[in-house]
Design a protein around this nucleic acid. Structure first.
Lengths: 88, 88
DNA sequence: TTTTTTTACGACACACGTAACAATG
DNA sequence: CATTGTTACGTGTGTCGTAAAAAAA
């Protein structure tokens, strides 16, 4: 599992759709679709149910969301801690 | 910053050397070296001082270590939570 | 027709392993 | 000579964006 996968997943979850998420992520729908599919495959569980104009998270998706936020928050803290210590 | 970077960093930190870390990571020294260099470049701070037969962490390295462990632990919890829920 | 997700495809970048090098004991 | 870290290099995987297809109102 990759961190970018989690960031893409969170974007889709919060945006409620792949195309909206792709705009937040500054990329195209196809990449978001591919990454989410790969994440679902690697986790072995569907994360969203694709419906007309609404992407609803599965139970797995809901559980992943809260955990993914924690991981991303932890990583953002790391990066934040190194802001301003540019010595190389 | 990539998660694999953090895993490589932790391995070097705990192994106390690049070649020992490469064995834990099932890869070669050159990859470990390149990844640590990339991580140092992206963070803008040196993480290790390379000395003869001893790789000692800098202060930045020490700080990164405790945080990296938290991030990795958080991610491992996510993956653990999905073990056994293989429905796809 | 408009908005969506998926699939196919070509191009490029990155990460890998092999191998050679420099340095230290 | 043995071991370590770095650098150079060729190969292949993967990720990207473009473009086309399919579905729904």
């Amino acid at each position: 599992m990759d961190l970018k996968d989690l960031r893409y997943f969170v974007a889709v979850y919060e945006a409620g759709g792949f195309s909206r998420a792709s705009r937040y992520l500054n990329t195209v729908q196809s990449n978001v679709s591919a990454r989410i599919q790969g994440l679902e495959r690697s986790l072995g569980a569907p994360l969203f149910e694709r419906q007309w104009r609404s992407v609803v998270p599965t139970d797995h998706g809901d559980r992943l969301y809260s955990q993914a936020k924690q991981v991303i928050a932890a990583l953002d803290r790391v990066e934040e801690a190194f802001k301003g210590s540019r010595t190389v």
